[in-house]
Design a protein around this nucleic acid. Structure first.
Lengths: 196, 196
DNA sequence: GTCTATAATTTGATAGAC
DNA sequence: GTCTATCAAATTATAGAC
């Protein structure tokens, strides 16, 4: 078996912890959730849980990374990255706690380069922005997106609406986040003049 | 003098405190700033400062409200609300700490109805959304915005981009927030088909 | 109105036994 | 690897003097 040795065991356990944490946070939310709360739900003591992660922030950053992995696995690999993004946003309405976690961590980490999650967000936005810009460029060549639109800017804007809609959705869960992201996307596809 | 009596004095002092706090937060940022830090900068003890506000969260909510007042006073009353919004976003690049404060408070307060700032955000989004939707409706009648676009949805989306761009700007201050909000606005003005 | 002093917790992190 | 126990702070909020 490939999972032999203490290293693999540690990794497997870590993943198991993260998947449980993902469920717990998704439901119970993230109200400055303490390490102990999470420890209880995964059946470990606080110290036991922190054995796997260097700090609280590292733990929650790992949760965010794991969530991206899970989301990616669920997405249709055939689909345009923009379509995938919209699908993920649509799913977000089912996991309020994760939306809360993402929003909280992003505000805390983006403005503080020394925050444990800073690198995660840098990588995430760079990666998504590039992927989306590439997809937009392809559509542009097909004439589906006006030539005057800068792909990177449009990509940036699509990510921004996604993030911003989370705030308004938390305020009123009846709000349809995905629909609003789609509106921007359709406006771009429908634009005929050539905004910079 | 109109400012006589303990009530008026209290109000004046409160405003004075808030204006100082606004400066301090704008520069120093909001890294979970403690009440004591703010108290020091306004020349009061921690308890002295809390004499004017019921709690820490009430204090920071008051700072946000005061900031909106100041921003509103600076805006051109002749301008379209959407243009005003873009102007405010442009100014935001000069007050990083306030962007941080707004982002932090919005994530904390929107998801928690019992948070001291919850009502503030409810009112703020409702008000801005309505005003923007009205302005969009007017443009629609003039034929500047496609008839098929729902004014409230477009308004919602413009607010979302504004919020979302703050995250990406905190990550990279070279990002031009206003320019990206304008992109969405121009896409809407340039759209020719009729997205819902 | 403002201060000093302190209560009241909470909670992240670590040391060390098993 | 996991736990118990404890440390070490950091703050908010309040009581009560002046």
């Amino acid at each position: 078996m490939a999972q032999r040795g203490s290293y693999a065991k540690g990794v497997a356990k870590r993943t198991e912890i993260l998947d449980t944490a993902l469920d717990v946070v998704a439901r119970n939310g993230f109200r400055g959730t303490s390490v102990k709360e999470l420890a209880d739900s995964v059946g470990l003591s606080q110290a036991g849980l922190l054995h796997y992660f260097d700090s609280k922030d590292e733990l929650f950053t790992a949760i965010l990374r794991r969530r991206d992995e899970v989301d990616l696995a669920l997405a249709d690999p055939q689909a345009d990255i923009v379509e995938q993004l919209i699908t993920v946003i649509r799913h977000n309405a089912d996991v309020p706690g994760l939306v809360q976690l993402f929003a909280s961590m992003s505000t805390a980490a983006t403005s503080d380069p020394s925050h444990a999650a800073h690198a995660y967000f840098v990588e995430r936005y760079a990666s998504l922005r590039t992927q989306a810009a590439d997809a937009i460029t392809i559509r542009q060549r097909r004439g589906e997106v006006p030539a005057g639109v800068d792909p990177t800017r449009l990509a940036t804007v699509l990510l921004a609406v996604s993030d911003g809609m989370q705030i308004q959705w938390m305020l009123d869960p009846a709000t349809d986040m995905a629909e609003h992201v789609e509106l921007v996307w359709r406006l771009a596809l429908a634009a005929v003049a050539t905004p910079a």
